[in-house]
Design a protein around this nucleic acid. Sequence first.
DNA 1: CTGAAAGCGCTAACAT
DNA 2: ATGTTAGCGCTTTCAG
Lengths: 337, 337
Amino acid sequence: MVRIKDIATKCGVSIASVSKALSGNSDLNPLTAEHIREVAKKMGYVPNSSARLLKTNRSYNIGVLFVDDTSSGLGHEYFSSILNSIKEEAESNGYDITFISHRFKNNSLTFYEHAKYRNVDGVIIASVDFKDKEVIELVESEIPTVTIDYEFNGKTSVVSDNVQGEADIVEYLVKMGHRKIAFIKGDDTSVTQKRLTSFYRSCKDNGIEVKEEYIKDGRYHLPNISGVITRELLALDDKPTVIIYPDDYSLLGGITEIEKHGLKIPDDISIVGYDGIKLSRLLRPIITTYVQNSTEIGRKSAKKLIELIETPKTALPETIFVKGYLQEGKTVKDINK
Amino acid sequence: MVRIKDIATKCGVSIASVSKALSGNSDLNPLTAEHIREVAKKMGYVPNSSARLLKTNRSYNIGVLFVDDTSSGLGHEYFSSILNSIKEEAESNGYDITFISHRFKNNSLTFYEHAKYRNVDGVIIASVDFKDKEVIELVESEIPTVTIDYEFNGKTSVVSDNVQGEADIVEYLVKMGHRKIAFIKGDDTSVTQKRLTSFYRSCKDNGIEVKEEYIKDGRYHLPNISGVITRELLALDDKPTVIIYPDDYSLLGGITEIEKHGLKIPDDISIVGYDGIKLSRLLRPIITTYVQNSTEIGRKSAKKLIELIETPKTALPETIFVKGYLQEGKTVKDINK
DNA sequence: CTGAAAGCGCTAACAT
DNA sequence: ATGTTAGCGCTTTCAG
């Protein structure tokens, strides 16, 4: 390993001068500096981030907190896509990404402790139980954080605009002549709450009375559950003309069930998803769904966190809404005619 | 921030004693040690991994190298699943995960330099161009590495058993009475090479003469490309009875095209995928595909890398094959009858 | 313009 | 059983 000291010896200067030459921002003789840099390069010098951190208290490392639960976290296209864009944005700003988690070996650390242990400059939190004590501890700590799809009072967050999204869906359905709209909820989270509230409000705005039997408790990402609920909805005397699923993935369970009943989509019943997974455009019929802009969500989160880290004075906590758009597929029938 | 020194002061002992008490493996008075540990806990002490690293040269941090190319890397279910299991296995052994990449801000580092800069104890390499100079530099460096789905001579790798996989597919197709088998290649990589070679060999073993017009250059993960190729195959005078696609995702492009021709799967033509994405079980018909054991691949990679790191003397370089299995869906017709 | 020196938080060899 | 001390590689003040 080549150290600054080695370069200093080779160049016959002090280690301080080498450090200055390498960082660039000092009043060294430009020629000396250039020479030092050349030698450093020739010797294959790579700085040691840990040693640097010890002095500067900056790691240029961002922690990312995802749960590892089955079917959530990285298994979810929405989140793996967010992670990917966080990574890209961070890297292009000179930051690396380290996962924050509980750790098991000997000492298990809380999320906050883990973040301190790794000296991350900040943490992006996504896809976790936001009521978790440890998550709250982390958010309320001195470490800058950005939460995704959940707002903590006075903290920074980036959220997919679920209110607008659900409203857009209802608006579209109404335009297509639907008034019997079933809504399958996802797990009980704030995202689900927002979508549901927006659903109710949009229905009201359009003079639609929501039948309680059309509102069902479902789960995200579990096609089988959606299948069962779909069966219940199809068994109603007064069937809905359209079913809104909590996500595209669980919608697939609905399709299977609907086809089992010998019904045609969208002729016999219409369906709508949420997320806009890549597959929604590949399947036939193309799925009508609300496409969340996961790339933008990841990018904004990283950007905002870095701002929080680098200019804490001027960066004010805020909630950033990221809009998506309705993908008009072929799974909703126009029943006006 | 609470430092060892603070605890020492509080307890009226030396910092050495605190360090010893915390690490446990030393001949301290058990009572003193216990007391120190209690105080440390009460004070909210969290060790500083960077300071520790500086002394010990161990970071307990594993680098993971994925390319960021569109449609590859994390966007690929196969790889995000591998990443997830790497993460789990690593964490349960007390290691964290940091992404290795080029970095852009000021100084761009090679992969090897980046790994050194972050002091990772080892690197897992997946989904990259293995001919890349930088990748080779990293693999041939002093840093322990495990490559996924690519073997470097004398190095450790974990590979999905593509030879067996393709052979299993052919075997199954033959059993189902197929002899006109089309094969769409993925991008030109060693994985593709292995599958193709295995395909030829298996056909030969079964007395099947492979028509060159049945072998097509395709791409991984690009349904449109598969669609175009499917059209070409369907236009042949002597059509194949079954098409093997490079992956499940690109197979979907094939389905779309086939349906456009008014053909039924599997009655008019059979299709087979590769990967076994979750969706392959959700769609109707269920896709016949070779399911790669991505979880096991990730787990084994991490396990093996940690072995390489912790017991370099006894860990010998090897290629670990991970088998998958054929998922018999409903997209292959039995044409024996 | 350059260098000496202190010290970030920790471990471990070596004293006591 | 406990403490002293050196030093990991680096940055940064301060002195020259």
